[in-house]
């Protein structure tokens, strides 16, 4: 009677198939307008801010976030902060500047090396790469939030759904900004949207890296590629079990790896656990939404 014929296929209901990534297909025009509207409303209307700060790493997530913020609020309302550490790849800076130039976003560079090393060199000289990465990630958030305070701006987060589900981020660092446009998009969906928005190919097509440890890439670190992890995660959180996916032809070792990461990081996707003592415990009994 109404609507297009044939009607759109029910992508989310597809049976698992490692060769069929269509469940992750998105209408990039729709998602772009959706997220632009989201940013306008959550930042300006709901929270009353006119400006935002985004940590621009040179990677695709922060590039897309900055581009969407510029589209939503105007590039002059966005400050992209480049926050290099002494071990950061020079390509990260090059790519971040490429993105800023493309979307006409003002930048400021604040080197976090002395802040990070001031703590580590004096008190924890033996800290390994993982700990140094966490300290750097948290230092970046200190700068991001302080710059936001100074400018009466809101920090905007850049984490994607795959990272969040895999727990592949530093807790109370990458996940701490109060507004995040990409948190319900898998990495392959971020790539698709970034291409549609016009993020430079050098940024979209390079191997994803947190750039916390020299030479590290996310996919080597995780032991699974993002397209594989995205599809496995999609089916797992849609109610399929690891055995279902293995039977459908997914590589069992990778399914188990992804499932283990998913199941061992639920805590990371929540606020701290508070001892409940009363029938007015905040967030348990006393329930008010974030924008109330």
């Amino acid at each position: 009677m109404t609507g297009a014929w044939p009607p759109p296929e029910a992508a989310v209901a597809r049976a698992p198939d490692p060769a069929d990534a269509r469940p992750l297909d998105i209408d990039t025009d729709l998602v772009r307008s959706w997220l632009v509207q989201f940013l306008r409303e959550e930042i300006e209307r709901r929270r009353g801010f006119r400006r935002v700060v985004v940590g621009l790493s040179g990677g695709v997530d922060s590039a897309l976030t900055a581009a969407l913020c510029a589209e939503a609020l105007g590039p002059e309302a966005v400050l992209a902060l480049l926050l290099p550490y002494r071990t950061s790849s020079p390509w990260s800076r090059e790519h971040a500047l490429l993105v800023a130039e493309k979307f006409e976003i003002p930048t400021r560079t604040i080197d976090i090396t002395r802040a990070v090393d001031g703590y580590l060199d004096e008190f924890e000289p033996g800290a390994g790469g993982h700990r140094r990465g966490n300290v750097a990630a948290r230092q970046r958030m200190i700068v991001l939030f302080d710059q936001a305070f100074k400018l009466s701006a809101l920090p905007v987060g850049t984490g994607n759904k795959a990272e969040r589900l895999l727990g592949y981020y530093t807790w109370h660092a990458d996940d701490s900004p109060p507004v995040n446009p990409l948190g319900d998009l898998f990495k392959s969906q971020v790539w698709a949207l970034a291409r549609a928005v016009g993020v430079p190919a050098e940024v979209v097509d390079k191997p994803a890296t947190a750039d916390l440890i020299q030479g590290q890439t996310d996919e080597e670190d995780l032991g699974v590629t993002y397209p594989e992890a995205d599809l496995i995660l999609h089916h797992l959180i849609s109610g399929r079990g690891t055995d279902d996916l293995a039977e459908a032809g997914f590589e069992k070792k990778k399914v188990e790896l992804v499932a283990r990461r998913l199941e061992s990081t639920h805590w990371k996707r929540h606020l701290p656990t508070v001892a409940m003592l009363s029938p007015t415990a905040i967030g348990e009994w006393y329930l008010r939404p974030v924008d109330y």
Binding site: T2, P7, E9, V12, D27
Partner: peptide, 23 residues
Amino acid sequence: ARGAAPGAGVPGNLVRWDALASA
């Protein structure tokens, strides 16, 4: 709004509403 599969140009819940209300 939920569902951004290609095809309809609108969120999936509105595709559902269109079918429901028409029916």
